[in-house]
Amino acid sequence: MTPTKDLIAQGSDKTPQKKILIIDDDEHLLLGLTARLKTNGYAVMWASDAVTAISVARKQSPDLVILDLGLPAGDGFLVLDRMRALSDLVAVPVIVLSARDPANNKKRALDAGAAAYFQKPPDNHEFLMAIRRALGEMVALSTFLKT
């Protein structure tokens, strides 16, 4: 069994693992997505509502946030706005992953500072690519390809 393209093992790397915070209230999604992200070499942490999300983010300083829009205690846009207002979180890239219709939400999310918008379920490959791009890892890859 050969791993698919997005499953690039990073475990052997000396560099410390990048931390991804998933903010979503669906436990099954957390379980499934975490397994995939961990396989790809990321450290994963969770938050299930808008309030906890901010405190976890401030405490853990994730390198990237995957954000659902429909959350208990305030929606994803609120989280986005708060993050943009906090100096320690303003630079953390956010990828929105929501079941909501992109026609009504994508532009708003991007305007609010999200790096990308994916409607659930996302394509694994494209989703991982977006994560790497947001983390700046794609740059390294392309530099590698050029040499």
Binding site: G32, A35, T39
Partner: peptide, 26 residues
């Protein structure tokens, strides 16, 4: 459509994870 997408996403991740060998060979 929103409500259908949520469980669908969980199924998608579980299926692709197993299929892609995250939990070992099949």
């Amino acid at each position: 459509s929103h409500e259908l997408r949520t469980p669908l996403t969980a199924i998608y991740f579980f299926t692709t994870n197993i299929l892609d060998g995250v939990f070992g060979d099949l």
